[in-house]
Structure formats: C-alpha cells, structure tokens
Nucleic acid binder design. Structure first.
Length: 922
RNA sequence: GGUUCCCUGGUGGAAUUGGUUUACACAGUGGAUUUAAAAUCCAUGCCUCGUUAAGAGGUUGCGGGUUCAAGUCCCGCGGGAACCACCA
C-alpha cells in the first residue's frame, strides 16, 4: 500500500487538535499577521465544494506566513443570527438556537476534515450572549455619541449638551436630521425632559426616527437599502414597499466622506473600491433657496448644475415632501391629493418599472427665481425622491433628460441656457458649452459658470456650495425574533439606554416566532420581559449586519468579559492584514464594518482607522448540472443527441449518478420511485448521454458536489490543491471533478519519490549537485512569488514542475526534499507532515522555516536568444551572458543561419536587448 | 443609460509586465509493461500548404493604429460578466 491519505490525514488532524498547535497568543518578540475569512452563516445544507475555496486560500497564506516567522492570528466563527433559522423555527416550532447549534456542529465537522490551521480557541458565535453583549455595547456607544462635522469625528452627547446649554445649536456643525430646528440656549433650558430627549435624537449616531422605510410584508420586517434590489428583497425576492414607521437607524451617512477617503489607503481591488464609491455616491453642487410666493418659508433644493439656474422653469417636490400640503392652493387640492394617493398605492417596484410613464400634478403655488424674481410653478412628481438631497428640485428641462420629459408631458417651457444641444429632440446634459440667456453668466463656460453662481449665491445669501452623498442611514430595527435585542427601555414613551451593567440583555423565550396579534414584533410575546414594571424593553431586534460588523476585533480577545477588546491586544494585532471573502458583501458588511471601525477609532477603542488592509474576493464555484430528457406524457427518456426527434422536457438529474455525462441507468431507476420503470432511448454506442449546463451550485438543481465525498475518495490534501489549481482565486468557475486526477497523481508521485513499494524511505544524505539546487531554488522563488501575489494556481504548478524535474534527475536526496516539503506544507500539510516525520524530523513541518532562494544557484552563464528578422522569430541561439551588446550582436550576425536568412540584404538596424532578444531590421 | 472588467488550443488555465505564445493539468490519440485490468511510464497533440518528410506561411474575438517588436499600449466594432441607476 502506498500513500494512504485517509489514515495520514486523520492522524495529523487529531494531533494538531490535541496539541492546540495553531493556538496563538500575543508575542511581542514576533511580528504579527492577521488572516481572516468572512465567517459563514451555518445553513442547514452544510458546506458544498465551493464554500471552502476562500478558507483553503487563506489557510495556505497563513501557513506560509508562519513559515516566514510571523505570529499568525487565523480564527474562525459563525454568523449565527439570521432569517433562515427563524423561518425554519416558524415552520417546525424548533428553537432557532437548537437548529443553529446543529448546523454549526456539521460545519465544524466538515471544516475539520480539510486540515485548516484555525485557532479554534478564539471561536465566536454572534448568537452567544457573551458575544452579543459587545454588539449591544457598541449600539449604546453609538447612541451616546454625535458626529461633529468640524472635527470630522464622533463626540459624546454630553459635549453636545454642554454646547447647546451655552449658546444653542446655531454654531454646531453636525451630521443630523434634515428637519433639526435651530434653538437657542434659552429654548433648550425651557424644554421638558421629553422634548430634550426627542431633540437629541436628531444628533445621536444611533437614533430613532419616523421615516419612510423599506417594508417587506412577506418577511414581516423592514430592510436596509443594501438588502433591497430593484424593489425586491435580496433574500427571498419578495416585493418591498415604502412605509412610514418609527425605526432605529444608524447615522452611517456621517462617515460618508471618511468612508470615501479611506478607500485610498487600503489595498482592495479597484472594482470593489469603485462599487463602494458608487454606493457612497458623493456629488458636488449647491443648495439654492427659492422664496415661495405668499409664504414666509423658502424652498430649499439641491442641484449639481448651479450654472443652469436661469434655465429653471418649474420646481418639483417629492410626493412625500412635507410642504406639499401646506402650499397647495384650494383649487388644486383635489388633483394633488388624488395624485399622492395614486403614488402611495404603487410599490417601489412599480415606481421603478414605470419610469417611462411621466406623472405629476400642479400644486397651484409659485416660487420666485432667486435672481430674476420670475414666477416659477411648483409641481409634485414621483420622479423626485424624498430621501435624496432635500426632496425637491429645480427643474431645468433644457439640460436634464428627466426634467425634459416632464416638461414635454405637461407642456412646460424649456429654456436653453447652455449652447450646443438640439432641444427639439432631447435635453442637452453635457457639461460643455457656453452659457446663454443667463444674465451675468452669459458667455462663460460651464465650469466657470458653476463657480460664478456659487459665489453669487453666497454673496447674496441665496444659497451655498454643497456636497451631497447617496449613502443613507442604515435602518437598524428588524421586527423579528432571531437577532440581538436592542438594549433600550422606555420610560413614559421615551427611549433610554440600558445601563452597561445590565448587559447582555438576553433574548427571551417566546411561545411562537410570529408577530403578536396586536402587530408587535415577536419579542412582544415574551412574558415578564421588562426592565421594570412600568418600563418595557424595545421589541425589535438588530439586523444581520450588527453582529458581523466588528467580529474581527472580538477574535483578538474573545474571552474578555470586561470589554470588546483590550487595548493591549488591539495594539498588538491592530487590524486584519488579509481578509478573504465573497464580493456579495461589497456594499453591506464591508461598508458597515468600516463604519463601526471608524467610530470605535474615534472613541479610542481601536488603534486603526480601517479594519481590513488587504482584501481578496474569491470567486464562486459554480455547479455543472446534468439533464435527462423525458418524452412528454411518458416515462421514456431520450438521449441528448436524439432529443431533437422527440417532444421532450429537460429534467435536472443528480450529478452523482452521472459520469462524464453518461447516465448510470440503474442508479437513475433507483434514484426516485417515479423513475423505477423508466425506459430509455440510447445513443448508438449504447450509452445515455446527458445534457449539461453551468449554474449556481444548489441542492434544488441536484448539482451539489460534497467535499466530504471528495475527501474520502482523494484526500483533503488533493482537494486543497485542486481547488487552488482550478484557476485564479478571484475568478468564478465551474466545478469539474475530472481534473482532480492530475493533482491526485502529483501527491502520489511525491510519496513514491520518497518511499519504495514497502514504504521504506529511499532518500540519502548525499550533497545535492548544482542542477538539483537550481531546480529547488527555482521552485522556492516561484512558490514564494505565487503565494505573495495570491496566484495559488501558479504555486501548485511550480511544485509540480519541481517534482517532475527532480524525477528526471533521479534526485533522491534529503537536503533537497526537506525544503521541498516545507514549500509543499502550506498546500498539502498532512502529506508533508507525514513524510517530514518519516525523515526523522522532530518539530512539525508547519513551524519549520520557509527556505530562501539564492541567486547563485539560479545564475546561468548562457541565455537562449530568439534571433528574429523584422520582428519575426527565425531561430534560437545560446549566447554567453558575459558578452556586452556589441559582442552579442557580433555573435548573432556571424551565425550561419543568420547569414542564410539575410542573403546579403542590407541591414538597417540591430536591436539587442540583453536576456531578451536580438532583432535584425532589414 | 453610466461605471469597471474580461475575450489565448477540445477544456481549466500559463506568459519575466511590450521581447517573439500556449508552462502546468485535464480530456484525446498511439505505444510500452501486464494473461487481463488497474496503476505507471514514453510519445503525440493550434491551423493552412507540402503524398510522407524536411520545410514554409499563418495564428491570442474582429478590424485598424503606435513600435525594431503587441496576448500585453491606443482607437473602432462584436460578444460576455459585475456593480450602479428617475440620486437632480
């Protein structure tokens, strides 16, 4: 028996676990390195072959860094709160904690079989009260802080109160609610406790507000913006509507600018940074005030094109705008109310799919142009969104397509103010051209005009330059059971933070996971779950992103009962050096984590401003589905190439009973009761050929490949190598088991290289020769480069090439094999460890030293130059590297072959690039 | 509609960053070993012309450009992916 991977892998996994080999502590004598995987949500389906891709890559990197002498923190845990467990609980009545625990155990079992070097002593679970204690603590800290725009930092609410007591909020520049009123110190002093608390909600970083939210009736909860796509919930795809509700929110928008600036300091892919930049959506423009006729107030709008101010021919308010009711004239009241009623009925999805249908209503009111004083009609239209800017716009139909369409629909004037377009057909939106019809700006180019308007607006106090962000505050309440309770209690209807010594506020038991009859969240069912007899707790729970937003900090100090993370441990581990996970978290988790981290940085809790220095997005591994074709209305199945002659329905078939697209007929009959008597129409060669397609790996498509099966058949080391060998880590690719033979053969070859048929070691202590050293050092260099650049597929190839070359040299020498095993150990730790031990080494190969390659073994004295004429390669010639350019040229020209190609033709030029090429131009 | 990115053998993918394609692996074909199979090893492997061979020419989605030299840089077209999108 040769390489017995099952036995070897079990042996080493047990040993590593028993000896807690990968458990780490702060060690000031060693440089630290923090490698983190996005922790999984433990679903009931278990791991498929795609899930471990990132874990394998990060494990290889961690092992490599250990060999390089780093103190490597490489933890794992579970994102255990969430909807699927709760849905399952509603259906079965089982407590989500029970099913979650079961799923976690299954995940752990599967992961353990792959030989990961996780420090399991630091495991965290977001649903564990010892963990969510700190999630709740962070919420309270957010509640107790506000964001000072002057310092661009979070500061305590007490400092805000002190400022207001002194001089009101006039000089305070904060990120706060749009409708925050201006008050004096006197006003403040006169406020009741309730009024004060309500007023402070305008400033808190975790605050309660009544706003329009994404309400998903099917899920029975509100959702954050990143959980909604095209009017449907990301999870489940249910319709989402806008509903006004009182909710907890996080003032993420306060950090917009810092979230944007921080992107320049971190090593993420450009595409991912771009996604975040889009999501944050910074746009520069101006706020302009339009006085309303016969009203004391002025209408405030945001525009990115202040230069087109003279082209504004009407105003549009969002239907939800608070002044719509106030300014609508009696004559228009019915029309406007009817219009608002119609828009309210529409779901978000309708509103989006209805883009082509321009709708709106005239309020009957007018405002006055700030510079000309001209009357401008005010309309209501649902193409203006209440959540962005001020929820009101000045419409410039000449230079904005949406305004243009609106003007055409309702026959409103279109004024050209930037020359260059053809307004008969469409708006001219380009920021290029000279201003016309614009009073003091006539003749200016667009950028100059923008500057000029801004100056003029400020001078006359009719507006000011303004930067707007698309990033909204995150809705933090979920009307669900399986999440962290929000540590708030109500006294006389006013929310107060729970005292810190009351944390964690544990999730109470309930008899059902559905909302109460009164429509309260499920926590309303918990009996006696109150802060005191009069003061009840908040009934909503936190969203999924709450628990995952700072878990990387908790790993540093997971057992600490006094704080999230101690200063000492945080200052040692700092932040994550390498973060590996899927790009689906680009605008959710990865924005929230950065937000939380920046906040914790502001309050002095963590020492780094950004949480993740480098980020790698691993691609998805897709499934390869197989089909059989059933003749309609029969139980007869037609083979792939013959199906065109019949009327057939394709049916997904379990890929485990298909080999190389050939269906195992017996297995198919046994697969399901209904196919027991199946008949087949076969190909000429007597096989049933299945169709195939590439799609998501999913249980319902019967294309799931289970890693357990692969480990059983080929070993964990083979699976690890193969997943890396499949291609660049960032690319999505379909799983194809047939290629796994190649890497499996490689590992068997490694074994046979070291042992004979009786498993006796055949290696000697003999000194290696220069050829062997060259092979080895080439491999060291390549593997090191490959791991550093995360091109792990190249790493595997390099190891294969090395072994092939050594086999050709018949090199059976320990001094060569030892470093080779160290290189291999990151990829195939079990096999390397076994051979390492059999070589007589005492220490684990995982803690040996990564060999360094030396130039002297790689130096060549000749280089094979391609000799080309007019850029076309003619032949190859070995030329000594000692020669200088002129000498190389001479050697190349004197060659017989060169002469025969030249045939006496005139040489115009000769290009010699040392160690590259000799090119002769004739 | 906007932004970012991709396109190399039958397949997954390499290519010293502008240096003369297709490393490594899979599948295929031919052979060796074997009673046989498995396992292993060797050879072969882009296209066209050439009976074979020697050889010649072409070739990185298509077309053009820059350059002594282009898979790599630039422009246009075609195909695909991801993200954003009534964001004023």
């Amino acid at each position: 028996m040769s390489y017995n991977f099952n036995e070897i892998e079990k042996k080493w996994q047990t040993k590593w676990q028993e000896e807690k080999l990968f458990s780490v502590e702060v060690d000031q004598n060693k440089p630290k390195f923090y490698v983190l995987d996005m922790f999984p949500y433990p679903s009931g389906a278990g791991l498929h072959v795609g899930h471990p891709l990132g874990y394998i890559a990060s494990d290889i990197y961690s092992r490599y860094k250990r060999l390089k002498g780093f103190n490597v923190l490489h933890p794992m845990g579970y994102d255990a709160f969430g909807l699927p467990a709760e849905q399952y609980a509603i259906q079965t009545g089982q407590h989500p904690a029970t099913t979650t625990e079961r799923n976690i155990n299954r995940y752990r079992e599967q992961m353990d079989r792959l030989g990961f070097s996780f420090d399991w002593d630091r495991e965290v679970r977001t649903c564990d009260p010892d963990y969510y204690h700190w999630t709740q603590w962070m919420f309270l800290e957010l509640f107790k802080h506000w964001f000072n725009n002057k310092t661009q930092k979070a500061e305590t609410i007490d400092s805000l109160i002190a400022l207001i007591e002194k001089e009101g909020n006039k000089n305070i520049e904060a990120t706060c609610n749009v409708k925050t009123p201006e008050i004096s110190a006197d006003d403040w002093a006169k406020m009741t406790e309730e009024e004060k608390q309500n007023f402070l909600q305008n400033y808190r970083l975790a605050y309660q507000d009544e706003t329009f939210v994404n309400w998903c009736p099917k899920l029975g909860t509100v959702l954050a913006n990143d959980e909604v796509k095209e009017g449907l919930s990301v999870r489940g795809g249910h319709p989402v509507e806008q509903k006004k509700m009182k909710q907890w929110l996080l003032r993420v928008s306060a950090y917009s600018q810092r979230l944007l600036d921080g992107l320049d300091t971190i090593d993420w892919t450009e595409s991912l940074k771009e996604i975040q930049r889009n999501w944050i959506g910074r746009s520069e423009g101006a706020t302009v005030y339009f006085p309303i006729e016969n009203h004391s107030e002025r209408l405030e709008i945001f525009t990115t094109r202040p230069d087109t101010l003279f082209g504004a021919s009407f105003m549009v308010l969002a239907p939800e705008h608070e002044w719509v009711e106030k300014i609508t004239t009696p004559e228009q009241k019915n029309v406007v109310e009817d219009y608002i009623f119609q828009t309210k009925k529409k779901t978000e999805r309708d509103r989006i799919s209805d883009v082509k249908n321009v709708t709106g209503a005239f309020t009957g009111a007018y405002c006055l142009h700030p510079f000309t004083g001209k009357q401008i009609p005010i309309w209501v239209g649902d193409y203006v969104l209440s959540g962005y800017g001020t929820g009101a716009i000045m419409a410039v139909p000449g230079h904005d397509q949406r305004d243009y369409d609106f003007a055409k629909q309702f026959n409103l004037p279109i004024i050209e103010v930037v020359a260059g377009g053809n307004l008969e057909e469409e708006a001219y939106a380009a920021k290029d051209g000279k201003l016309i019809n614009s009073d003091f700006m006539n003749g200016l180019r667009v950028p100059e005009a923008i500057k000029k308007t801004n100056e003029e607006l400020e001078k006359q106090q009719k507006g000011s330059p303004k930067i707007n962000f698309r990033l909204r505050d995150a809705i933090f309440s979920r009307q669900r059971y399986w999440g962290e309770p929000i540590p708030i209690y109500y006294k006389n209807g006013i929310p107060y933070p729970l005292p810190e010594d009351q944390l964690p506020l544990e999730l109470p038991k309930v008899n059902s996971y559905l909302p109460t009859e009164e429509g309260e969240a499920p926590l309303g069912r918990a009996k006696d779950w109150k802060y005191s007899s009069e003061e009840h707790y908040e009934l909503t729970t936190m969203p999924g992103f709450a628990g995952s937003s700072a878990y990387y900090l908790r790993y540093m100090d997971s057992k600490n009962n006094n704080e999230l993370v101690s200063k000492e441990k945080n200052e040692y581990w700092e932040n994550v050096d390498l973060y590996v996970g899927g790009s689906e978290h680009a605008v959710g988790h990865l924005i929230y984590s950065r937000f939380f981290n920046k906040f914790l940085f502001d309050i002095g809790k963590v020492c780094k401003d950004e949480p993740f220095k480098k980020l790698i997005n691993q691609g998805m591994i897709q499934g390869r589905s197989n089909f059989v074709y059933r003749k309609k209305g029969t139980n007869t199945f037609v083979s792939y190439n013959l199906k065109k002659d019949h009327d057939v329905t394709p049916i997904h078939v379990d890929v485990n009973i298909v080999h190389n697209d050939h269906l195992d007929l017996e297995a198919f009959k046994n697969w399901r009761e209904e196919y027991k008597d199946a008949q087949f129409i076969l190909e000429e060669d007597g096989h049933y050929l299945c169709g195939n397609t590439i799609e998501k790996m999913s249980k319902s498509l019967f294309n799931v490949v289970n890693p357990d099966k692969i480990v059983e058949d080929y070993g964990a080391d083979t699976l690890r190598l193969y997943e890396m060998f499949l291609g660049p880590i960032e690319q999505s690719k379909p799983w194809n088991t047939s290629g796994i033979e190649g890497v499996s053969r490689f590992l068997h070859k490694v074994w046979r290289f070291c042992f004979d048929e009786n498993n006796q070691l055949v290696l000697t202590d003999e000194e290696p020769n220069p050829t062997e050293l060259k092979i080895l050092h080439t491999a060291i260099k390549k593997v090191e480069e490959a791991i550093e650049t995360f091109s792990l597929n190249i790493g595997v190839s390099s190891l294969m090439i090395c072994l092939n070359d050594l086999t050709k040299e018949n090199c059976k020498k320990k001094p060569i094999i030892r470093p080779f095993l160290t290189l291999l150990s990151s990829f195939a730790p079990h096999l390397s460890e076994e051979i390492w031990q059999r070589l007589g080494e005492k220490e684990s190969v995982c803690f040996s030293t990564f060999p360094s390659w030396e130039q002297k073994y790689l130096v060549e004295n000749t280089y094979t130059y391609p000799i080309s004429i007019n850029g076309k390669k003619k032949f190859l010639k070995e030329i000594s590297l000692d020669l200088n350019k002129e000498e190389i040229e001479k050697v190349a020209l004197e060659d017989e072959k060169t002469q025969s190609f030249l045939q006496g033709k005139q040489i115009k030029k000769i290009i010699v690039v040392p160690k590259r090429i000799v090119n002769i131009v004739i």
